[in-house]
């Protein structure tokens, strides 16, 4: 029990130290630090943006814009929080701004209505048995298809919760919505994906 607390304390203090170092580097606009951060967060940030926008090409544009914004507004990063939470909130705001330029506010407009555009491709990988792999792949394909039919705010909540492992409070701060809204988005999103999973099991 005490060893668990010690591990948690060590983990938290090393996270805080990392955040402080990142904040210091961002204030200096340290290009080497940014290079490292881009490498470190490349897949996570792109995955978040692909889920949020539902469009790979747009997600890639926003990916680049996010890092430019991080460079320009790095001094606003508060090292009391995890860098990833701030990074995702910067990306979230850029996606919202992009949408507002195109149509009235909210993420609703990012609901994918183009079925041919499938940004969540599922290549066959892994080390499980061939049968398990096929089942897993089929399930993921169906879930990926289901994701494209979900409203963007549900997709966002699901990716932050189950892929990024964020706490409900962190998701609320990224999406700038109350905690209750986050809970309901996760619940509704997961429930909406259920029929798609059942489709995979047929």
């Amino acid at each position: 029990m005490s060893s668990m607390n010690a591990t948690a304390f060590y983990f938290e203090s090393s996270m805080a130290q990392e955040s402080t170092e990142i904040a210091r580097g961002l204030r200096r606009r340290d290009a080497d630090l940014l290079d490292r951060l881009i490498e470190q967060y490349q897949h996570r940030l792109l995955r978040y943006l692909v889920y949020l926008t539902g469009r790979r090409e747009l997600a890639e544009d926003l990916f680049q814009e996010t890092w430019i914004r991080v460079l320009e507004r790095g001094h606003q990063f508060n090292d009391k929080y995890a860098f990833s939470t701030w990074l995702f909130s910067v990306a979230h705001n850029l996606a919202i701004d992009h949408l507002r330029r195109k149509q009235p506010a909210s993420l609703d407009g990012l609901l994918n209505d183009n079925d041919e555009d499938a940004p969540f491709d599922v290549p066959a990988t892994g080390r499980a048995s061939a049968f398990d792999l096929t089942v897993q792949r089929e399930q993921s394909e169906h879930i990926a298809a289901g994701m494209q039919h979900l409203p963007a705010e549900y997709r966002e909540a699901l990716v932050l919760r189950f892929q990024e492992g964020m706490s409900l409070e962190e998701i609320a701060s990224v999406a700038r919505v109350p905690l209750g809204t986050v809970k309901s988005r996760i619940y509704r999103g997961l429930s909406a994906l259920e029929p798609w999973l059942k489709g995979a099991q047929l």
Binding site: Q42, V122, I143
Partner: peptide
Amino acid sequence: AQTIHGLRAIPIAAERSLV
């Protein structure tokens, strides 16, 4: 549980050129 597992199994990776 299966949905969450399936979600985590959707791999989206950034390409080298983008980075």
